[in-house]
Design a protein around this nucleic acid. Sequence first.
DNA 1: AATAAAATAGGACTAGCGTCCTATTTTATG
DNA 2: CATAAAATAGGACGCTAGTCCTATTTTATT
Lengths: 222, 222
Amino acid sequence: MRSIQLQVRPGTAAFSKGQERVLKILQSAQDLMISGGYHNLTLRKVAAGAGISVGNLNYYYSNKQDLLRDLLDTVIAAYIAEFDNVRQDAGVSLEDQFIAIVRFIIDDLGTQATTNFFPELWALANHDEHAAERMDALYTKARLVLNDLIASLNPALSDQSREQVALFISASMEGLTPFVGYQKPWANDRDAISNIAAISFLNLVRSISDDAIQSGKLTLQA
Amino acid sequence: MRSIQLQVRPGTAAFSKGQERVLKILQSAQDLMISGGYHNLTLRKVAAGAGISVGNLNYYYSNKQDLLRDLLDTVIAAYIAEFDNVRQDAGVSLEDQFIAIVRFIIDDLGTQATTNFFPELWALANHDEHAAERMDALYTKARLVLNDLIASLNPALSDQSREQVALFISASMEGLTPFVGYQKPWANDRDAISNIAAISFLNLVRSISDDAIQSGKLTLQA
DNA sequence: AATAAAATAGGACTAGCGTCCTATTTTATG
DNA sequence: CATAAAATAGGACGCTAGTCCTATTTTATT
C-alpha cells in the first residue's frame, strides 16, 4: 500500500484512519531503525510500536521490503525538505550562505536520528538497489545548493570540477558522522571541527582550479 | 575460543588443525559481511563457507557475538598493520609523505572490501559497544601518522588543534567511501577527488591556526 | 600400540521471523 | 438504517535462526 500516504495529508476531508496508521507505522519503524539498526527492525516490533497487530500491519504493508522502501522514502524526503529551508534563511554574502550551510549540516549530524540513521542507509545501499537509488537522490539534492554557491564563489570552475568539489565537500561532512555525531567520541569537539570544515571548504572553493584538479599538482602559496 | 588464534601462526610446530579452521571461519565470515552485510551473515552460511558443519563452528565459537568480535578484531588489525607499512615507504619531503598517505587511503576505499566493510562497522558501532571500541582503536591509530606529519608541517598548532585537524582529515576521507568507493556513482572520479582532497588538506594543515579553530573566524587571504 | 585430547558431523530444540488467512469490528456511504 | 468497504485482531504456517548435545572420527602423546 505504498500509494496511500504522501498524497493526502491530515486535516484533509479525504483523510481516513489508515492515513494516520501509516504515519504511526513509519514512525515506529524509524524509531526502531535509529535505536537498534536495521537488523533489529522486525515487523512484530514495528506493529507493537505503532500500537497495532501484526495482521493489521500486514494490511498496510504486505511485505517487509515495501515497508523499508517507504521508510527510506519518507525519511529521505524529510531531509530533502530541510535543504530547501536552509537555502531560504540564508545570510547576506555568498561566503555567509556557504558557511551557514556547512554549519547547519554538521550541527544536524549531531542529532541521534542522523547519527544512527545514515550509517544504516550507507550499509543498506551496498546491498539494496532501492536504498542506493534513494541515497543518490538525497545527496544529489544536497549538492545542488552547494553547487550553486560554488559556481558563484568560483565562476572559473568547469561544471565537472565544480561538481567534484561539491561532492568532496558533501562527502567530507557526512564522514564526520561516526566521529562527531550523537554521543560519539568527538561529539564535544563538534564546534571546533565545524570551524575547521568551514575554513577549509571556503579556502578550497576559493582557490581551486580545473588545472589543479586534473593535474593533482599542488599550487604552493609561497 | 577467542584466545586460540593470533598467537600461533601457520608453519609453527604448535600449529594445530584448529588454527587453520579459525582462519577459514574468519575468512568466510568476512566474505559474507562484505558480500551481503551483517544482516546476511548467519552461522550456517559461515560454516558452509568455511567447509565445516554448524556443530563444528560452534566448537570454535560458542556464540555469534564472539565470532563477530573476533572478525572485527582481525579485520581491523589488518588495516592497522597496513598503516605501519604506509608510514615506511614514504617519500622525501613532509608534503610528499602527507600526500602519499592521503592518496593511499582514498585508493584503498575503492576496494570492494573497504567499501562494503566500513559502513557495516559504522552501523554496528552505533549499537555494539565492542564494535565502537575497536573502531575507535582503528581510527586512533590511523590518525597517529597524520598527527605526526601535521605537527611537522605546522609546529605552531596546539596539541588539541592538531588532533582536531587530524580527525577532520581522517573523517573526511572516510566519508568519501559511500560515494567514490567500489562501484559507487562517483567511482570514476576517485582520482580527481583524491587530488581535491590532497590539495585541500595540505592547504588546511599549512594555513590553519589555533585562533582560527577556536574563533571560527575566516582568515581571508586577500 | 594405547590412550587422551581435539576436532567434527549430525541432529534436535526453542524462539523468532515474515507471511498469510479468516473472522470480526469499525467506519463511511447511499 | 442498511450495506459495502476499510480496518483490525488473532492465530496458524513454514522456515530459519542461534544454540546445544552427543556420538564418532581424527590427531597427538607417551
